[in-house]
Design a protein around this nucleic acid. Structure first.
Length: 807
RNA sequence: GCCGAAGUGGCGGAAUUGGUAGACGCGCACGACUCAAAAUCGUGUACCGCAAGGUGUGAGGGUUCGAUUCCCUCCUUCGGCACCA
């Protein structure tokens, strides 16, 4: 008699045995066959782990166990992305210091992870909000600064006038403050940026060799937004009515960017972004009123409203004129909000005949439209495709591609422009007017010039004498200790930088710090980095496709240039897990639709729960939560437990059919786990179990192989089974079963017979049968014979699969 | 608007160098065991049809002996970008 499998006892037992044997304690120095498996680290929220966490962390653990059994030394660390808004907001609400609530949450989460039965070695953990970690965040800032990749400039932030606070993009809902509903305005602020744009081309090129979802690569390509074109210089017409300015700073030219230099002869006006610094200088007195009024109007619009306008183009003429670089014609200069200051040069040459936005604008303000590319009708809309140049002097008759080249060559000769590549990527704004982040390691002298804090003062501690109430300034400005500390070290009148760093900075290099084992002298040991990087498999949500995954790549490239690492790319293979929803909606505390795994784990055990999550569908798809099928997995576990131990017999050997099924299962489980199709891997184990069930007895070897195949996906059950079957040591330490090609082949084949593509029968033939014999056999099938009476026109034979007759 | 992914039984999903659509599981129905229930086991389960047979992978067309798979048009859902010059 076999007692029922009791998951809670068995799982607790094996978790203890693993711990006692130090089974999952890792040594990155000793590892011989490194495999670096990382899952994006969580934010330590106060809520319990939910079904989504189990999906995200238990399934990769199964993948790690599989790689481990295949002989890899799998390093699979876990840490916490602990700086960020929620803890700060919680502090504003309750007064609890973020450091305190964060630590409590981290501790609680670690306890829950342990119950999951995952292989994390907590000795390698990290927490980005600890001084031991953020000293490296600050070190990274200093390195960026040292290599001229960090600079300050004025930029706009989302500002809530009522709450007196800077808002993150996700706190802005429909142009209003998420909390109080006040309309959010754009406020200029001087902040720190990192020059990620210097790396645009490398970030683009590097994508090619990465084993990443194509979709993600494409998103990064769009994000980087490379476009080839030309910068063209338009002189400003010398007009006595223009604005007064000092002779030496007289602006004399506007530089525009265009991807269509071939249409230069079709330019009928020039447009500047309303924020363009030249606007003020070129606008003649007479037009200032209208221009300033328009600028005010644009400033009031949030980004949302500005982009929602779609078709209605607005703008105003500045009254100034530009000179066409080839024809010398005078072209009016307009300002319009459809031209963006942060793309290209903030100025465009308008070719209404061949650009939709210019066309709409020209129609609105009755500006001339000149066709310079043949091949389309421009009476109703712009013709934006390529064609043959016309009305274009020396370009006439050339196809677009050649016309572009010739125009660029002409401009370069005449020194009126040049061919350039433009990127949409913008520099990374790393300043945050927040408390709960890493302080920026910069101090200002009494004249206000920034100076990097010498490395010996790191970690540059985050002060604690701060109230968390919003005041309109960075919270650190309140800290007396912070200011006193700065003056004590640097001198009277010196002040610290009060902003903290974006949390994406913390997560841009954490893959290196896991490997550093807390080393406080070096970011990472170069030999360890060489051995372990890049990360072999990185798993995380698709919401990080651009931001985090581009920042991390940029930082790795920069660190390589600085000489600290040997690799260019941090993540070799990337997989996005799907999202587990509840009734179609993302699980969140605010919606109150969070599903807790606790009651299921208690009833069925963690093996069943994680297996059920795997069985729901492909890992990359996620799915809508429903507990209706979990019983099927629970049944499977009980049947495995009962049948495998009951039927195994060291004295029997298996039939050819059983061996074939076994080897086919080894193959499909291996393929399934390698490609993260855990659902099909489990299905094929179920099929194998169904086959074994019909046997009187099975060999001990087959039973043990079953336990091994089960081990990554149901680790506790597999250990229990393995020990019951007399296996030595832990099943997780066994090597992964190999399949034998010879055993995959059946002695007979089923050949399908079609007539005119319709299935009419099937025949069973010897695996070695010849084509002619198989076709002859197919013709004899009584049902097939009926359909081929009228005569066969064509015979098609697909080896080992089918015969098709055309009549 | 543009870019990308997807759409298969009552449900989750299998199957793609084009070759038996619906593996595996859930649910459901009937049966066995039971005083009974649960659990377990067995049988059946895409649709229409008594059957022969026919239909069927979002809709419509195309290529092919043969299409869930390839091509075109459209619809729906999801994700991303959003006046990018």
């Amino acid at each position: 008699m076999h007692p029922e499998y009791n998951p809670s006892d068995v799982e607790a037992k094996w978790q203890k045995k693993w711990a006692d044997a130090h089974e999952f304690e890792f040594d990155i120095k000793k590892a011989k066959n490194p495999y670096y498996l990382m899952v994006m680290f969580p934010y330590p929220s106060g809520a319990q782990l939910h079904v989504g966490h189990w999906f995200q962390y238990s399934i990769p653990d199964s993948f790690g166990r599989f790689q481990r059994m295949r002989g890899k030394d799998v390093f699979h660390p876990m840490g916490f992305d602990a700086f960020g808004l929620p803890a700060e907001n919680y502090a504003i609400k309750t007064g609890t210091p973020p450091a305190k609530s964060t630590q409590e949450n981290v501790d609680a989460m670690i306890e829950q992870f342990k119950r999951m039965g995952v292989m994390f070695d907590w000795k390698y953990s990290l927490n980005t909000s600890t001084p031991e970690y953020y000293r490296w965040t600050q070190w990274l800032f200093l390195q960026m600064h040292k290599h001229d990749l960090a600079y300050r400039k004025e930029g706009n932030v989302n500002w809530c006038p009522k709450d007196q606070t800077v808002l993150a993009n996700e706190q802005v809902k429909d142009g209003c403050c998420e909390r109080c509903g006040t309309e959010v305005i754009q406020k200029p602020l001087t902040q720190w940026y990192w020059k990620i744009t210097d790396y645009a081309q490398r970030l683009l090129d590097g994508l090619e060799n990465l084993v990443w979802p194509e979709k993600t690569k494409l998103m990064q390509q769009h994000w980087i937004g490379r476009s080839e074109g030309a910068e063209i210089i338009f002189e400003i017409a010398n007009d006595e009515k223009r604005a007064p300015w000092a002779e030496d700073e007289a602006p004399s030219k506007i530089t525009v960017f265009t991807t269509r230099p071939d249409t230069l002869f079709g330019v009928t006006y020039v447009v500047l972004a309303p924020e363009h610094p030249l606007v003020e200088k070129i606008t003649p007195e007479k037009h200032r009123g209208a221009v300033n009024a328009y600028k005010e109007e644009v400033k009031k619009k949030t980004e949302m409203q500005r982009t929602a306008l779609e078709k209605d183009k607005t703008g105003v003429a500045t009254g100034a004129y530009a000179i066409h670089p080839v024809t010398g014609e005078k072209l009016p200069i307009w300002i319009a909000d459809y031209v963006l200051m942060n793309y290209g040069t903030g100025a465009v040459m308008a070719v209404p005949a061949h650009d939709e936005r210019d066309f709409a604008f020209a129609k609105e303000y009755s500006l001339p439209v000149i066709q310079v590319v043949d091949g389309g009708d421009i009476t109703e809309s712009a013709f934006t495709s390529e064609g043959i140049a016309t009305n274009s002097e020396f370009l006439d008759g050339l196809p677009t591609k050649e016309a572009k080249k010739k125009m660029i060559a002409w401009l370069e000769d005449a020194e009126k422009g040049r061919g350039i590549i433009n990127y949409r990527l913008r520099d990374w704004l790393v300043s945050r007017q927040r408390y709960w982040g890493s302080p920026i390691p910069i101090v200002y002298d009494p004249e206000g010039n920034p100076h990097p804090i010498p490395e010996k003062h790191l970690p540059w501690m985050l002060p604690t004498d701060v109230e968390f109430k919003p005041t309109g300034k960075s919270p650190l400005t309140e800290s007396k200790e912070f200011i006193e500390r700065t003056e004590k070290i640097f001198g009277k009148g010196w002040t610290p930088e009060f902003d903290t760093m974006d949390t994406f900075v913390c997560s841009s290099f954490y893959y290196l710090r896991y490997l550093a084992s807390g080393d406080d002298k070096h970011l990472i040991d170069p030999t360890i980095e060489k051995k372990w990087m890049p990360v072999d498999m990185y798993i995380g949500g698709p919401e990080h496709a651009t931001m985090h995954l581009i920042y991390a790549r940029f930082v790795m490239m920069a660190l390589k240039d600085f000489g600290f690492v040997s690799h260019e790319e941090p993540f070799q293979r990337l997989v996005h897990q799907g999202l587990i929803t509840n009734q179609g909606a993302k699980m969140s505390k605010s919606k109150g639709n969070v599903v807790s795994p606790d009651s299921f784990v208690e009833e069925y055990g963690s093996d069943v729960f994680r297996m059920y999550l795997m069985f729901m569908g492909p890992f990359t798809d996620g799915g809508d939560w429903s507990d209706t099928g979990i019983k099927g997995i629970a049944r499977f576990v009980q049947r495995v437990w009962r049948l495998i131990s009951e039927k195994s017999d060291a004295k029997v050997s298996d039939s050819r059919d059983v061996l074939m099924k076994l080897h086919r299962t080894i193959k499909s489980v291996t393929d399934g786990l390698e490609t993260l199709h855990f659902n099909t891997a489990i299905a094929s184990l179920m099929e194998l179990l169904n086959t074994l069930e019909s046997q009187e007895k099975i060999s001990l070897e087959t039973a043990q192989t079953f336990a091994k195949l089960l081990s990554p996906i149901a680790p506790h059950l597999a250990e229990e089974l393995w020990s019951t079957l007399g296996g030595k040591g832990f099943v997780i330490d066994q090597s992964w079963p190999q399949f034998d090609h010879a055993q995959l082949q059946s002695d007979t084949l089923t050949i399908v017979v079609q007539v005119n593509g319709k299935l009419r029968g099937d025949i069973t033939v010897d695996a070695k049968a010849k084509k002619e014999d198989i076709i002859a056999e197919a013709k004899k099938d009584p049902n097939v014979a009926k359909y081929i009476e009228s005569g066969i026109k064509k015979e098609i034979y697909v080896p080992e699969k089918l015969v098709s007759f055309v009549v």
